[in-house]
């Protein structure tokens, strides 16, 4: 059992890839936003890469352990400390019963991950332990963790003293600027050439009005092809309106003139176009980006995006760990 002393900012239990199979009833997959760091945390403590762990956002939790455990902290640097002493990241570490792990505010990156050997053993909902906070599904009582709660942990072994070498970690940046891969489509033919160029050549600012449902971007105006104007009226009155359609996770959803990247807890459908889609391999960067930081988009093919995802999965394996 792990006791929550301070919850942090919407710290939640997630598993990977999350809640699949219920998209047609409107359930998003949820799961960790930076699944690269998340999987490595699990691999470090000997869990399956997708086992249930904690996602900490911008402001981390304080946890107290009532039993010995092997744990790992990866992702954003929240200056973790064990009983007040600096706690090494990207390593498996043995903690003793009675010790307290405290994460602070994110210094570099936005989201940190905590894995514990054996993994969290909260109740599965629709085949996943992931938290979908908005609808109260999964996690602990449907929500992110709260102070005073006790988080159940399954029995697990885990070897302390393992480390993820630098070359297998995501390069979490400090310069407030990110290059995010995008694939064209499904509705890229609604945007004219000038609009496409503007999208790909501008710096977009990540709004503070962003959370696990959507990342709102601020930037230049969008311009459209004839398709956006010459359409049956049931599409809606705005150029970016379309007859309600299914939304892929990662869709760059154009609500009027405001692009919103639909992320892990996003809607399954709606009446706006999605000219571009952020592929899964770039999600770790979204998870580590902070409000006010700049996003640049780089067009890649579907095949290239799929290749990038495979390259990340190859890094998230036990064979890549070394002794600390």
């Amino acid at each position: 059992m792990i006791k929550v002393l301070k919850a942090g900012l919407e710290t939640s239990i997630q598993d990977y890839p999350g809640r699949y199979g219920y998209w047609n009833q409107g359930f998003p997959p949820s799961g960790p936003m930076d699944s690269w760091s998340f999987r490595l945390a699990n691999v470090l403590v000997g869990n399956l890469p997708g086992a249930a762990g904690l996602e900490c956002q911008f402001l981390g939790p304080t946890l107290s352990f009532d039993a010995d455990a092997v744990i790992a902290v990866t992702g954003a640097d929240m200056r973790p400390a064990l009983d007040g002493e600096p706690f090494p990241m990207w390593q498996s570490v043995a903690v003793r019963a009675g010790q307290t792990l405290a994460l602070g505010a994110a210094r570099v990156g936005g989201r940190a991950y905590i894995a514990v050997a054996g993994a969290f053993a909260n109740e599965e909902k629709l085949g996943s332990r992931s938290t979908f906070n908005k609808a109260g599904v999964g996690g602990i009582d449907g929500h992110s963790i709260k102070a005073g709660q006790e988080l159940p942990v399954a029995e697990g072994g885990g070897t302390p003293g393992l480390l993820v070498p630098n070359e297998h970690r995501p390069d979490i940046r400090t310069d407030r600027s990110w290059t995010i891969e995008v694939c064209a489509g499904p509705n890229d033919d609604w945007i004219d050439e000038a609009g496409k160029e503007r999208f790909l050549n501008s710096a977009w600012t990540l709004s503070a009005k962003s959370d696990r449902t959507g990342f709102r971007l601020e930037g230049p105006e969008w311009t459209f092809t004839e398709k956006a104007y010459k359409k049956p009226k049931e599409h809606g009155s705005l150029p970016s309106n379309i007859i309600d359609q299914g939304y892929p996770m990662g869709a760059i959803n154009l609500a009027g003139q405001t692009p919103i990247i639909l992320v892990n807890d996003g809607p399954s459908m709606g009446g706006f176009i999605n000219p571009y889609t952020v592929p899964s391999a770039a999600f770790w960067k979204l998870g580590q980006a902070k409000p006010g930081e700049r996003l640049h988009f780089r067009l890649v093919s579907v095949a290239e995006a799929q290749h990038l995802a495979k390259e990340i999965a190859k890094r998230c394996v036990r064979e890549n760990l070394v002794n600390a």
Binding site: F58, L59, A105, A106, A208, K290, P291, G292
Partner: peptide, 8 residues
């Protein structure tokens, strides 16, 4: 000091 990253 800022307690967390964001917009002030």
């Amino acid at each position: 000091l800022a307690p967390l990253p964001g917009l002030f």
